[in-house]
Amino acid sequence: MERNAMSNKIKTYMMFAGPAMFFFFAVVIIPFIYGVYLTFTNWDGISEKKHLIGFTNYIAVFQDGGFWNALLLTLSYVAISTILVQVIAFALAYLLTGGLKGQNFFRAGFFTPNLIGGIVLGFIWKFVFSKAFTAFGTMISAPLFESSWLSDPIKAFFALILVTVWQYSGYMMLIYVAGFVGVPKDLIEAASIDGCTNTQRTRHIVIPMMAQSFSICTFLTLTRCFMVYDLNVSLTGGEPYGSTIMAALHVYQKAFKSKQYGLGQAEALVLFAVVAVVAVTQYYLSRKKEVEA
């Protein structure tokens, strides 16, 4: 009897969760564990043999200046992009929830870049930065645009930020719009009756009520920006002089270009740890804010 119940349980598990768990383990869990093992080897991607070399790769991570430069660059990119995206997305959402005529059209329009992959977006903007902006700059003789942004390390970095902000502000705007719509009407009315001005209402009622939207949007922007790869490859390709190589691209090159799989994987895990720490910190900080709302 007992045994029958047990085998029944296993049977239903296999019937319903079996396929999902098989794919999940084969593609996520096993590679993840195997990846941890790889960091302790000196595998070059081709040879049959790999030797266990202890913590050598992790020591090498700390000595790899290129990796830390890439990580530092990624952190600044993430910080600037995340802030700008929230400001612009919130402003757009604010303007697009007042019952304005054609607001659905505007919302749909701002979201458009998010339908297209980073590779294609990068190529589009490459043309804009290197050909259109320069022509425009010469036409109105604005020195800022006369030479291509992509040939200067600092400007190329800001080119990446500009495209990122352009893309994600339309995405996050949608989530902020949902947040605005979710603020209870009676609260707003009560505030108006009590004599709140528009600004006061936004500052003291709407914004605190939208704390959850802020934490969702910040989290999404943060995690996506950290792992940026497609845009990095197609817009700058890490150029000029390797000055715009972000962390994910660096990891890719370590493994698949320089054939240092163990070291590349160790760097990938360090990157993962950094992202996890930042994301968890952000989550807890914003959760605190949500409680008081």
Binding site: V28, M227, A268, F272
Partner: peptide, 9 residues
């Protein structure tokens, strides 16, 4: 877990 952490293995 981001994809980049899994792609090499």
């Amino acid at each position: 877990i981001p994809f980049q952490t899994i792609m090499i293995p």
